[in-house]
């Protein structure tokens, strides 16, 4: 599936939630159930330090795809990370670099990707795109 197809699917999933609580319960569940990074990568080198929560990000190139794994110490941040990974992982680097992540706004989570929120997510998306750029150039 392309990045936009995955985004549209997520938007569709989220349209079924009646209120903010159902939405957040779902995100919290995502955060709880997904072990999304190998413990060995939860180190200083992979750490993106936000003021509020920490994020770890690891990128790996498999064939012509970039594979992301990530984690956070805050569960809501982790839930949102799992959505971002779902959208951007196993795509080709150029698509990652050029991705327009409109789904975040559409599912009403824009506030979490505000630079002033300082939860590490903005830096994480930036870092993901930088990996996309670096791996595009390496191709």
């Amino acid at each position: 599936m392309t990045i936009n197809e995955i985004q549209d699917e997520i938007i569709d999933d989220f349209s079924m939630f009646g209120d903010w609580m159902e939405k957040y319960e779902y995100i919290i569940d995502l955060g709880k159930t997904l072990p999304i990074i190998d413990e060995q990568y939860k180190d200083e080198d992979h750490l993106i330090k936000g003021c509020q929560s920490k994020v770890w990000l690891h990128a790996d190139k498999q064939g012509n795809k970039v594979v992301f794994t990530a984690d956070s110490d805050a569960i809501i941040t982790k839930g949102i990370i799992s959505l971002l990974v779902k959208v951007l992982s196993e795509q080709n680097p150029e698509a990652v670099k050029d991705a327009d992540l409109y789904f975040i706004d559409k599912i009403g989570l824009k506030e979490h990707l505000s630079p002033t929120r300082s939860n590490g997510l903005v830096s994480m998306v930036k870092q993901m795109k930088l990996y996309g750029l670096a791996l595009t150039q390496a191709q």
Partner: peptide
């Protein structure tokens, strides 16, 4: 729980 998560729910 993480403070960020508690703060987010309280905000809601």
């Amino acid at each position: 729980t993480h403070p960020y998560d508690v703060g987010t729910i309280l905000d809601k």
